[in-house]
């Protein structure tokens, strides 16, 4: 066997005192978090019979309000489509301003990043409450909430996609004498398009799932139907609604996957 003339490096690096203390703190916090989250095995076991009762009352699903449920489901999907498209369109300029490589000024970059973080950190249900209070009950409030939620998600990923693209074609267009707008449309957007499409399609899936919940606060869609059914103990009807929501989400995810595969 040949022997190296240099000593072998250690398999693991010895952590510094600070790193070691940090690891201990993280481990302690995880344990405390489980306790703080109220996780209780006994409560879970005691709840199993209730779950069984509820599930038995949900089956078989009741199909006598299919027309109303279908209409609410269509409205839910329309909200998701409207909110996503508006959000994606507005995310494009915000993504440009929020990218280090394309932002016209560092202050614009910082302000846009802050705005996007704010949009993202406030949950969609809170946005829905805000818009219900300002533009009234109904799908328009839900659409606006989904639009803001989409911007918070898409603009960030659009900015990152723009930052990651190869700068070579942009340099070539700069050398040609192309202006900033031409450089964006001729090299930045085409190069970032696969990532934009991916993010937009994922946003549509996300918006479809969110639009179901928004109805719970009066922002349109099928959520209100689900809430009424549950409040009135019409569990068989609730199970029908849940089944249709499941079918809608699966259909949107399948469609989104196919579109992404086609465009990539």
């Amino acid at each position: 066997m040949t022997e190296a003339s240099y000593p072998l490096p250690n398999r693991f690096e010895r952590p510094s005192v600070v790193s070691f203390a940090l690891y201990i703190f993280i481990a302690w916090f995880v344990v405390v978090s489980f306790s703080g989250a109220g996780i209780s095995l006994s409560n879970f076991i005691e709840g199993i019979p209730n779950m069984g009762t509820l599930l038995s009352e949900m089956f078989p699903p009741k199909m006598d309000r299919l027309g109303a449920i279908g209409k609410a489901l269509l409205e839910t999907f329309q909200m998701a489509i409207g909110g996503t498209i508006l959000g994606v369109i507005l995310s494009v300029p915000l993504g440009v301003f929020a990218s280090r490589t394309q932002s016209p000024h560092v202050l614009v970059y910082r302000f846009t990043r802050l705005l996007i973080s704010f949009f993202r950190s406030v949950p969609d249900l809170v946005w829905a409450l805000f818009f219900v209070a300002t533009v009234g009950l109904g799908p328009f409030a839900g659409t606006l909430a989904l639009m803001i939620d989409t911007i918070g998600f898409c603009a960030r990923f659009f900015a990152e996609a723009i930052e990651e693209i190869n700068s070579g074609p942009q340099e070539a267009l700069t050398a040609i004498g192309a202006n900033r707008t031409s450089r964006l449309f001729c090299s930045v957007f085409p190069a970032a398009m696969p990532s934009f499409t991916n993010t937009a399609m994922y946003s549509l899936e996300k918006a479809t799932r969110s639009s179901v919940v928004l109805g719970l606060v009066g922002a349109g869609g099928i959520g209100i139907e689900l809430k009424v059914s549950m409040d009135m103990f019409r569990y068989a009807e609730a199970s029908t609604i849940i089944l249709f929501i499941f079918l809608l989400v699966v259909a949107v995810e399948t469609l989104s996957t196919k579109i992404r595969q086609k465009l990539m």
Partner: peptide, 9 residues
């Protein structure tokens, strides 16, 4: 340029 720098898509 060395790597042509065309817009790939």
């Amino acid at each position: 340029f060395q790597h042509h720098n065309l817009v790939p898509r």
